[in-house]
Design a protein around this nucleic acid. Structure first.
Ligand code: ZN
Ligand code: ZN
Ligand code: ZN
Ligand code: ZN
Lengths: 146, 146
DNA sequence: AAATTAATTGAAAAACATTATCAATAAGGG
DNA sequence: CCCTTATTGATAATGTTTTTCAATTAATTT
């Protein structure tokens, strides 16, 4: 099921702003803010209102077609969502994002936390931070240069 | 080492706004936004500038005396930081936060992600969401009432 | 305890970001 | 192709964060 179908099946229209936002995120390797999305789309000759970007992101997030992630400095951005349980890893240097399957086993941790805090655990937020292949390359080149 | 010492040892002064922000967070069970902190402090008869709240939070976060966390709706807030590796669990109903030791073992996951994505993992963001004891209580009472 | 000094504050303004309103537009069904 | 209604976008209002800089204050020195 592609994103157009997800929209339709949930009673939403496949409108121009939504299409533009999805297209841009599909081609962006790093999380973008609403303003970055708006600017990029204008720059590439499209015409749409800032407001539509906000509304598109809100809806697409709700439908899990895009995800809200946080850079290592805490600043938020939107990336394309993958279906199913997954998480993201972000490059601390260039902010490039990749996703990985949510195959982690948190059951031991959850059990312990429930016992310690008496909270009942329902969900989790997990992101990894690191260095992407390209930035590793750059770093080792700089190393050699010194 | 208390927070006053952390400030001093790092060459920062123990100023009034910093004291007020720390005091408030020490007594707050849920994440607060800069504005909420500012308002609460004014309300309780103190006098300080909004700007100082922002600056205090920035510094205290840098020194790990407070932590930036995200509610389940994605909205950010600040809570008191604990020393050492730890994470937070937030109530999806009342937003009350608790912390727990970072005793999770992510090594298997990290190995897999590094193999799959070629990123080199350096750090992680982990939060749990759930229902706090008080809200569990409220929910079961409502259940019985029906 | 007073003087010294540099970090820190806060008022005001500027810059930036988000939300509300509502008439005009366009997507999708018939 | 037309109709209906979801959706858009211009504008304005609202809210948040950053900048600036003279005044203040914490901590150190005398
Ligand atoms: Zn990178
Ligand atoms: Zn997961
Ligand atoms: Zn609760
Ligand atoms: Zn951890």
């Amino acid at each position: 099921m592609n994103w157009q179908e997800v929209l339709s099946e949930n009673g939403y229209r496949v409108s121009e702003p939504r299409r533009l936002v999805m297209q841009l995120l599909e081609n962006s390797s790093q999380p973008l803010t609403p303003l970055q999305i708006y600017s990029a789309l204008l720059q590439s000759g499209n015409t749409l209102g800032m407001v539509s970007v906000y509304r598109a992101l809100e809806l697409l997030t709700e439908l899990c077609l895009v995800c809200l992630v946080y850079n290592s400095d805490g600043s938020p951005g939107y990336v394309l969502g993958m279906g199913g349980h997954h998480h993201h890893i972000l490059c601390q240097s260039c902010h490039k994002a990749a996703s990985f399957a949510g195959s982690e086993d948190l059951s031991a941790l959850i059990e312990k936390v429930e016992a310690d805090t008496n909270y009942r655990v329902k969900d989790h937020l997990l992101q990894l931070y690191g260095i992407c292949p390209a930035c590793q390359e750059k770093q080792s080149v700089r190393q050699e240069g010194n």
